[in-house]
Amino acid sequence: MDPLVKSAKEGDHLAFAMLFKENYPFLVKYLMKITMNPDIAEELAQETMAKCIQKIHLYNGQSKFSTWLISIATNAYIDQCRKQKRESNWKGQEEVYRKLKWHFESRNEEWNDALEALGRLPVDVRVPIVLKHYYGYSYDEIGAWMKISSGTVKSRVHNGILAVRRELKLGEETEGRHTRQRTTK
C-alpha cells in the first residue's frame, strides 16, 4: 500500500491533505465529464473527499487510490441525481451539457456534438459510457460501483452508444439498407 495512504489511514491529516491535493484535478475532471457542469463537479469533489475521510478504513489498497475516489464520486453523483429527481427539481438538469458548452465557447474550443449527445443520455447510461470508453474500466468494476450486474452495464453502454450514433447520424445508411433488405424478404 502507498505509504501516504497508510499514514492517512493511521490518522495523519497532512498525508490525507497531500493525497487529496495530488488527486484533486483528476477527480474534478472526471466529475466534469459525468456531470457536464464544472460547478457541480467542484461541489461533488468536496463531498467525495468528505465521504472518503469517513470511509478510509474500508479502503484495502487493492485498487489505486484514484480508482477508489472515482467509485465514491460516481455513487455521490448518482445519489445526488436521485435526490434531485425525488425533490422534482430536475429542470436544471434537463440540458446538463449547457454549462460545459459555455465553457468550451469561452475557451474558443470547438464544441463536440458527441458530448451533446452524451449529455442527452440519462445519468445511469452516461456514467458507464464514460467509465468504460474513456477510463477503460471493466464492466465488472463499473457494475460493482453502481450496484448493478455487469450484464446490465454492458447493455446500458451498448444502448447508449447506439443513441449517440443516432444523434450523430452515423450509419443511418447501413441501417436503412438493413430495413430495406428485411422488407423485401
Binding site: L14, K29, M49, L100, H133
Partner: peptide
C-alpha cells in the same frame, strides 16, 4: 461514435482546474 466521444472528453481534460493549496486540504 466512441472516438468522437473520446475526442470531446479529452478536451475536458485540457481544462485548467484550480487546485487549492495544501493548507486548505488539511483544514478540510
Amino acid at each position: 461514435a466512441i472516438h468522437k466521444l473520446q475526442d470531446g472528453l479529452s478536451k475536458v481534460d485540457q481544462f485548467p482546474v484550480y487546485t487549492p493549496d495544501l493548507q486548505w486540504f488539511e483544514n478540510m
